[in-house]
Simulated assay, not measured.
Amino acid sequence: MSWNFVRRVAQLLIGLFLYGFAIGMMLQAGVGLSPWDVLGQGTSLQTGIAFGWVTNLIGLAVLLLWIPIRQKPGVGTVLNVLLIGPSAEVGLAVVPAPAELWAQILLFAGGLVLLAAATGLYIGARMGPGPRDGLMTGIHARFGWRLWAVRSGIEVAVLATGWALGGSVGLGTVAFALLIGPLVSRTLPFFHIPEIPSAMPAGAAPATDAEPDPRPVTGG
């Protein structure tokens, strides 16, 4: 077992745990959530099922949508479905909900930065995209629709559904939409683990590792 593989697995697990923990922080801040988390919170409120379990179930449902678009999950995809919900529950359990607005904003900002770092960690491990990421990129690949249009259409529908169910939409939702892309564009290259090149004939020039797409789809 190579050191590169051990590093990828460790980075994947740490990234997924921190991703869920960051969601818990932003949920406790109470100033708005990402579209998928608005849906998770709204579903939790309507069903009485804990937020973490709802997150897992939504991830599983999205993963099933990969079948008609012929996407294949990786190990990281499956672990994403299994681990983000429980780690979000850890965040909810250990991070108190602040009462003052300034503290709410600081908590949300900390959660957003942590989520961006966690996204760079788990995507940079190169062990499979999250179910929501794969759904959007899979639809783009299968039908040729523009990625931004696919992403926007799905997230608007998810946000509207979650809001109708009672999920929290606020300034944090707007901040997430505006800031997560630029933040992740910084963390992805930093945490990206390059592929080890295979043996090449003597004198052949090694191929450079491609830089990851700086415009990732987030939400797990």
Rank of each mutant, 00 (worst) to 15 (best):
F191Y: 12
G24H: 11
P212C: 11
G170A: 08
V9A: 02
L64G: 08
G111D: 08
M200P: 00
A103H: 12
P201H: 12
Q104R: 15
P214N: 07
A118G: 01
L63A: 06
G203W: 05
V156S: 04
L82F: 14
G30R: 06
S87F: 13
M136E: 08
G219Q: 09
A93N: 14
T77G: 01
G76A: 07
G120D: 10
V95I: 15
Q28G: 00
P182H: 09
G120W: 05
W3G: 08
A116H: 04
T161V: 12
S198D: 13
V184Y: 01
R7W: 11
I69S: 10
M1G: 13
G59D: 05
I58W: 06
P86A: 12
V169R: 07
Q46N: 07
A157Y: 06
P206V: 06
P214D: 05
D133Y: 07
G219N: 08
L101V: 15
L188F: 09
L83S: 05
I105L: 15
W66A: 07
G40C: 11
V62H: 07
S44F: 04
I23A: 13
V9D: 00
I49P: 12
V38N: 08
T47W: 05
Q71G: 07
I139C: 09
L147G: 10
Q104S: 14
G52D: 09
F143A: 03
V113T: 03
A22P: 03
T43Q: 08
F143C: 00
V31P: 12
G110M: 10
V158K: 10
L82I: 15
T187D: 04
V75K: 00
L12Y: 05
L178D: 02
Q41V: 00
A199C: 00
P73N: 05
P197G: 09
R215M: 03
L171I: 15
Q41D: 13
F190Y: 14
A202I: 10
P73M: 10
Y122Q: 04
A175Y: 00
P201A: 13
A99F: 01
G203E: 08
G138W: 10
R151S: 04
N80L: 07
D209L: 01
F143M: 03
V158M: 10
D133N: 15
P214A: 05
V94I: 15
S168F: 01
G40R: 00
V217K: 11
D209T: 11
V38F: 07
P73R: 04
P189N: 05
P86K: 11
V94W: 12
A103N: 09
G30S: 06
E195C: 00
Q41Y: 02
V62Y: 09
G48R: 06
T43I: 14
T47I: 02
V156I: 15
G85W: 02
P206D: 08
A29D: 09
G24F: 09
L112V: 00
N56I: 09
R151H: 04
W66M: 10
A157G: 09
